[in-house]
Nucleic acid binder design. Structure first.
Lengths: 373, 373
DNA sequence: TAATGTTATTCTAACGGACCAATAAACGCT
DNA sequence: AGCGTTTATTGGTCCGTTAGAATAACATTA
């Protein structure tokens, strides 16, 4: 009977070791023990010998200060709220992994909420986290319209909000890496898959590509640009648009896709049309998702260092909380370039146009006998 | 000056609204207000009219109870500690996503720590979480040797620990799904990639496969079984072992791989040897990672419902905390079977043996002129 | 009218820790 | 001896909340 109640207490409260416990054992008062353990200003008047006794007892009893009592007193929680759209995918997971790493090293914890595509919940969750005393927010791939009450860092935030630091990719460098790689391989006629207008950074990325293309003397032929307008997250995202590109009959030797998913879909489309990658068309992706490496051929791509972006987000928010760093509106992250098998030297004669014609006529014969031609 | 200090207070503490604030405004005491807001037993003696005044004032002032004070008083935190090996990969991320979903719906939060392959840290992190007052633990793909001080649920735990509920896949059903699928397609000679001995559930899975094969009357030829012994997490994991299988020269029409990664690697190996998948060999994977769908051909695979496993883990740990459910040592999760393009009807004549010979002689000619043959 | 019972409300004591003011000795200095 | 300073320690208060005991006001009843 008493054993069972003991057990329960042990399970629930583990016979808590408090300052009082230690103080009692050493015939001191909780205040003295507290001062010694915290190296507070008052502790400079505690004799070394007593300090040692206190430290030893604390270690022996495995004393852990009660986080709630401390937070209540100090009005600090050492906790960050992470608000994400989703973490089931590689993107969110990698960023959070980076956040965790930095925060843990700096003795912070984080609480996570995920507002799966329900923007109304954002305010609710922010309130919940606020009630839990978080000292700052990190948002992931989330559109916030107004400044929250605490230091906030947005990773790939949609749009700029005053007071919120946005961590974004250096799109200019990204474009430069991708385009100069293709340039060096001798590609002149490059096709592009533009991101959907609803995608967070599609516009920025496209602008950077245009700028860099201009610098490198690459002409962007509107005939070779296709805009993605679905938000599918399977390679089916790229497939129909690549087909569309082929049907235009304009030759090209390389494709710069909006992201890896669409690049993989485009490769499917090309291969289905009898084109070899990279022998006939080179393809460059964007992101470096795990599947990029597993694809056949391996996808050459611009890698977003997601984990590092998480770390930097964490650092930024902590610096702002501690007041060691001033607010900046934007932090650009340097992408890396990963060369795999999907890019190669440009062929002098592009087969894309003729192949697509072959393919088109095949399709017409199969499906559309009542042609307008 | 005063404006700047106001500002600071607003940013930091947001001029907290406490019970005292409300009580002061209504000329009541904090205790009364607390009772009314919590609908505590004592509140039945509070007149309706006063209750309404209190509720109205609380809403007007946007009162949020201070979580720390409350936790300190009630010794409850409504927080779970999640200890994971890693979340950068799809596995951990999906499970956490499921955990989040269930916990949030039940007004719990969770703190996450990741002990990237450093088993020593586990104890430290458990302590840190304990100090933060978590009421239970969920471990992910982590080997714990002894019971922690609180209700604990292990998702794919390595080994059984008394007092810890282990959430595992129903390997028997998984094996049945995979093997009967192959059976129905007419496959008789099936090759197997066994998981590395260090992998958490390799042994269980293999045992289940053997049992089911026996039930279905499928003979397992030791010549057609290869054991993976690396822990690579790229498809390179499967590649060399599939090659090894081919070199044995024993014909087979299907391969059941240990997981999707190794299955994809095996498909590479087969294709490189001139074998068509699924025309010559059918391949079945395990897990259903995102790349499985993006692979070409799409990978037929046994899906582990990771998100659901996370949800169930969360439910289990909460039920144990609330005492509504008794401890069970193990909960088996039903896998799903996903049919994609990598499996097809068995060819009557297997080409695997001859192709591998062809390939072998090619390799020998290229690389190894001083052959022992 | 005093005892009893309701009803409405306040008071008090935690929860565990941190900080500050107070105290009390010990010490050096004039 | 008297005085200020340093050293070592204690006590009290507060952080915001809650539970339960206490009390006040008022009505009912023996």
């Amino acid at each position: 009977m008493s054993s069972s109640s003991d057990n329960q207490k042990k399970t629930r409260g583990e016979r808590r070791v408090t300052l009082k416990t230690i103080a009692g054992r050493l015939s001191l008062t909780p205040g003295t023990v507290s001062a010694a353990l915290n190296n507070s200003p008052a502790s400079k008047s505690i004799p070394e010998h007593t300090k040692q006794r206190i430290l030893a007892a604390a270690k022996e009893l495995n004393y852990r200060p009660n986080y709630f009592a401390r937070s209540l007193r100090l009005q600090r929680t050492y906790t960050i709220g992470v608000i994400a759209e989703e973490i089931g995918d590689a993107y969110g997971a990698l960023v959070i992994s980076g956040i965790e790493e930095y925060l843990r090293k700096h003795n912070f914890f984080f609480l996570t909420v995920i507002h799966r595509h329900d923007p109304k919940l954002l305010q609710t969750y922010a309130q919940m986290l606020l009630a839990r005393g978080v000292e700052g927010f990190i948002t992931l791939d989330t559109s916030i319209k107004e400044k929250l009450a605490l230091p906030t860092v947005a990773v790939s935030g949609h749009g700029r909000v005053d007071g919120v630091t946005n961590i974004t990719l250096n799109h200019h460098l990204a474009a430069k890496l991708a385009l100069s790689h293709l340039c060096n391989l001798g590609h002149k006629r490059i096709a592009f898959l533009k991101g959907a207008v609803v995608s967070s950074d599609a516009a920025d990325r496209w602008k950077a590509i245009c700028d860099v293309a201009d610098q490198l003397g690459i002409e962007i032929d509107p005939q070779l640009v296709v805009q993605i307008d679905s938000t599918d997250s399977t390679p089916a995202l790229g497939y129909p648009f690549a087909k569309q590109l082929l049907e235009r009959g304009k030759p090209f030797t390389a494709l710069l896709a909006y992201n890896d998913i669409s690049a993989i879909g485009a490769i499917w489309a090309f291969q289905e049309s009898g084109l070899r990658v990279p022998a006939d068309v080179s393809v460059v992706g964007f992101d470096d998702i795990p599947s990029a490496a597993f694809n056949s051929p391996g996808l050459t791509t611009v890698r977003q260092p997601l984990q590092r972006m998480g770390q930097i987000a964490a650092k930024t928010v902590i610096d702002q909380i501690e007041g060691t760093e001033e607010y900046v509106a934007e932090i650009a992250i340097e992408p890396e370039f990963v060369v795999r098998g999907s890019t190669g030297i440009a062929t002098s004669v592009s087969r894309t146009a003729e192949m697509s014609h072959e393919h088109r006529s095949l399709m017409e014969r199969e499906k559309d006998t009542a042609s307008t031609d």
